[in-house]
Design a protein around this nucleic acid. Structure first.
Lengths: 138, 138
DNA sequence: GAAAAGCGTACCAAGCCAGTGCTATTTTAG
DNA sequence: CTAAAATAGCACTGGCTTGGTACGCTTTTC
């Protein structure tokens, strides 16, 4: 139904939390703070670390910190890192896969739509999400 | 991965086609024209008819026509009719269902985001999709 | 050397989605 | 009046995605 996946939801919560913290935060800390399943969010933090969004420190007192400033991380990037490439319409990236590409009347407008959504999600930064800035009306 | 479902994709194609036709179009016609599975698109047309987006005529020479003008049908409505209510984030409509609502740092901004996307999809009409109007940049 | 933390990878169950099938009803053509 | 062309209304299914779990390993501090 066109929604963000739970993992992305969690990732946003995690990153927001890291963005507001000063030192490294462990998976354990976050999971107990928000009452979320620990293995789940540990996995997500691993993904975020593998994707260079957060830096990890091992060992006691270790944890995660943002690798970039919150205004340098876009919503689009978070979605991409967790859920894979953002394909609003199937043919957005692989026109060859479309069975009806020759006759499909909606290709161009749907791709334009895709582009707008993408730009939109690029323009929303983690900082916006944290600070709850007023978002400009569409 | 945050994409329109195939059914919505098909529905847009169908509605665009109906919007450009003059008389009633049968499921058979559309499916052979776009090489799409006939039972599938028949089902979708049934849904569209049940939701008052198209009018149906039974019998030989029957088929479907738009029930409203193309500029009176929004993308949001198409999605809603086919895929159910549009929930960009889980808590958008039912805050009570959110396990972390008390502490979740992202509620307000994500709901704002939800609102913007929704307005956006409300503002795109079938006519825009058909005529491939230049969509305003976000 | 024990505990706290992250790393890597594999696995599983439930739900959703795309697609199919079947039977009944309505309408027109001949 | 009957056959054919259509829609109506179901119910079903197989496979993929998603949310979540498990386990063994390495690194770091005390």
């Amino acid at each position: 139904m066109l929604r963000l996946s739970k993992k992305v939801d969690y990732a946003i919560i995690l990153l927001s939390h890291l963005g507001e913290a000063s030192g490294p935060i462990s998976a354990q800390e976050v999971s107990s703070h928000y009452h979320l399943p620990q293995p789940m969010i540990a996995n997500i933090l691993k993904q975020l670390a593998a994707s260079q969004l957060v830096e990890s420190t091992r060992g006691v007192q270790g944890g995660y910190v943002l690798q970039r400033q919150a205004n340098q991380i876009s919503l689009a990037e978070i979605v991409r890192v967790i859920d894979g490439p953002f394909n609003f319409v199937e043919c957005a990236h692989e026109p060859s896969e479309c069975r009806v590409s020759a006759t499909c009347p909606t290709q161009t407008p749907l791709q334009a739509l895709h582009g707008r959504l993408y730009e939109f999600m690029e323009s929303v930064t983690l900082e916006n999400l944290i600070q709850n800035h007023e978002l400009q009306p569409v």
